[in-house]
């Protein structure tokens, strides 16, 4: 057991520090992954909380056969897609609020992505469609294997490979237009 599975096992046996370790491992990664879908850091944070909540209330669902990281990111993706689906039907956010949140996200993002080169790449990634964004994020930011990324995205390995290939082509095109040297 690794990737936090042993920590979760300890948590299930009553050791609260196990949950803290899982938060240390995945809190920020999960928020940024979900943010790839929802493009709103506050919402991403809220959905990440809901994702970790699943570990607390449905304790028997994780079977310890797959990586805990894959399990968590799969739940996170599911929650993000649910949010997008629900929000597209019932949009509730005002334009002012959206602008405010966007600024907040940009400021936080700016702190994290201080390097100009990284910021440009990240901005280009954010302009990709959601599947490309998620695939790129899982494989290159979370360093998941194609198999694990496929499990998270509920797709086949081949589909993930195709997504990555097309995402890279799109990125190349976007960055090329902005004069980014590849």
């Amino acid at each position: 057991m690794d990737n936090g599975a042993s920590s979760y096992h300890r948590f299930l046996e009553g050791d609260e520090s196990g949950f803290d370790e899982i938060l240390d491992l995945y809190q920020h990664n999960l928020i940024f992954f979900i943010n790839r879908y929802v493009n709103n850091l506050t919402v991403a944070e809220d959905l990440a909380e809901d994702t970790f909540l699943e570990l607390l209330i449905h304790k028997n669902r994780y079977n310890f056969q797959t990586s805990l990281k894959t399990y968590l990111f799969a739940i996170g993706r599911h929650k993000a897609l649910d949010y997008i689906r629900h929000n597209s039907r019932f949009p509730t956010i005002s334009l002012d609020e959206a602008a405010e949140k966007s600024n907040e996200f940009i400021s936080v993002e700016a702190k994290l992505l201080s390097d100009e080169r990284k910021r440009l790449v990240n901005a280009a990634i954010n302009r990709l469609n959601s599947d490309y964004r998620a695939a790129i994020h899982l494989v290159y930011f979370e360093e998941l294997s194609y198999e694990d990324a496929a499990k998270v995205m509920k797709k086949s390995k081949k589909q993930v490979e195709n997504l990555i290939y097309r995402a890279k082509a799109s990125l190349r095109s976007l960055l090329g237009k902005e004069g980014f040297e590849l």
Partner: peptide, 20 residues
């Protein structure tokens, strides 16, 4: 962004709400 403690406390609040 929330700190780890705030994040954790928010999860536990949600859990309590869920059980209630």
């Amino acid at each position: 962004m929330k700190s780890k403690e705030q994040f954790k406390s928010s999860i536990y609040k949600k859990r309590d709400l869920y059980y209630a």
